[in-house]
Amino acid sequence: MRNITAQATAAATRLAGSDVAVEVRGISKLYSEVEALRAIDLDFPRGKLTTLLGPSGCGKTTLLKIIAGLIPATAGEIRVNGQVVTGPGPERAFVFQDFALMPWATVMRNVAFGLELKGMGRDERQAIAAKYIAEVGLTGFESKYPHELSGGMRQRVGLARAFAVNADVLLLDEPFSAVDEQNRRKFQEDLLSLVEKEKKTFIFVTHSIEEAVYCSDRIVILSRRPGRISQIIEPEIDRSASPDAIRRDQSYLDTVEEIWQGLKRYVD
């Protein structure tokens, strides 16, 4: 585990030399009186899974939505692949905490929805959607409606929809928080193999320390309001081991403990 404390080495939030997919520069956010984020500087390495972790109300979801272009920042700018973000773009795809599936549409239409909006023809988009439905393990459920699926399966639909538009950067806003514990574990394991396979940049928001350590290449810990970077941790865990071995791995357990000690003071 590599522990980089932000205050000590402010430059560490910027990755010298390595390939950066998303750059966050001086982002602040004010909601009328409340200061949600203060001067965030952060780089997200390409092809890696970076987690934003922090106590509730630290602004981690706000930061993710600013990167997505869903809400405007009060100050600062976001660059994705070097381009300044002014709104949502085709190089980013968002996975929603509450799935945001259209209840009137089948799994197939939901997954293909991003392509439908782009005006792609029916057969073409359905072929692409079918591929990603298979990839998230939902083959056979194409003509089901969201209400007929479990929470875990619904979020798989949300994930497939994000994959289908072939964005470079996937933004996941607490994707497992509405999924029950057993399904969440299975889903985390599947997500890791998808990260491996898809070679995309993942930015992942969670409040679960275990989830962050288990899934991430890099963990950015935000302090309580106003949200600032308090710590960056790179868990050095052997991902080639089986999921169960990872969860028993000493380095995994130590990292979890370390983060907990750091976050404890924010808990009321």
């Binding site: 709104g87 968002f94 945001a100 929805f113 991003g114 439908e116 909006l117 782009k118």
Partner: peptide
């Protein structure tokens, strides 16, 4: 549903698509 509207925005739906594909079906 604001979450569905945000979803449509995040996939760069136009205002017209937002109204016809999300808001009106959701409201129907």
């Amino acid at each position: 549903n604001p979450s569905l509207v945000a979803m449509c925005v995040s996939f760069q739906g136009t205002r017209w698509q937002r109204i016809t594909k999300i808001i009106i079906p959701d409201a129907s």
